[in-house]
Simulated scan of single mutants.
Amino acid sequence: MLLALVAAACLVPGALTAWLLRGHGWGVAVLAGFGVTAAFPAVLISGMLVFPPLGYLIGAAATLAALRDYDSGRLGHATTWATGAVVALACARWSR
């Protein structure tokens, strides 16, 4: 469930941007939507650098999700969550 929320949080802004810009042509709309979707992780990482509690919160949530997925045997999902936890906690640590 948490993975679906993270995917929606990353993809919905890009899809909405593409939908709102469809009047300017689908090529421009798709490129703008892709740009918004690609920029979202950079904005999130910079937010964790500026506001360390956000990095610790995301790191803790990703760690719990990784442990849950390791317990259920979904190693690919769990490894992805563990990598996200390491990145979030590293960003929070660098800002101190």
Rank of each mutant, 00 (worst) to 15 (best):
L67A: 08
A32N: 13
R74D: 15
T79G: 12
I45S: 13
T63C: 00
G25P: 08
L21W: 09
V86C: 03
A65C: 06
L64Q: 07
P41V: 02
A90D: 04
G33Y: 03
G33N: 07
T63I: 00
Y56E: 11
A38F: 09
T37P: 05
A42Q: 12
T80L: 13
F51S: 11
T80M: 11
R93T: 12
F34P: 02
V28P: 09
G23Q: 04
V50C: 08
H24G: 08
G33C: 05
A39F: 11
T63V: 01
G73Q: 10
P52C: 07
A78N: 04
A85M: 01
V86M: 05
G33W: 02
L49M: 10
L75H: 10
Y70P: 05
G84K: 02
A66R: 01
G76A: 15
G59D: 00
G27W: 10
P53N: 06
A32G: 14
A62V: 00
G25C: 06
A39W: 09
C91Q: 11
R93Y: 11
L44P: 06
G76M: 12
V86E: 01
G84W: 04
P53C: 04
A38G: 09
G73I: 10
Y70M: 09
R93P: 05
G23R: 04
W81G: 00
G33M: 04
A92S: 08
A62M: 01
L44Q: 14
V30G: 05
G35N: 07
A66W: 01
D69N: 10
F40P: 04
A29M: 06
V28W: 13
T63K: 00
A62F: 00
F34Y: 08
V30R: 06
A90H: 08
L54K: 06
D69P: 04
R68T: 03
P53D: 03
Y70K: 06
Y70S: 06
V36Y: 06
L64I: 07
I58N: 03
G35V: 02
H24N: 12
V86I: 11
L49K: 14
W81R: 00
L89P: 00
W19R: 12
L44R: 15
F51D: 10
L89E: 01
T37N: 08
G59W: 00
A42H: 13
L67I: 07
L21H: 08
R68C: 05
H77Q: 14
F34N: 07
T37H: 11
M48G: 07
V87L: 05
L89Y: 01
L54S: 04
L21C: 10
A82T: 02
G84N: 03
L64F: 06
A92V: 01
Y56H: 13
F40A: 15
P53Q: 05
G59F: 00
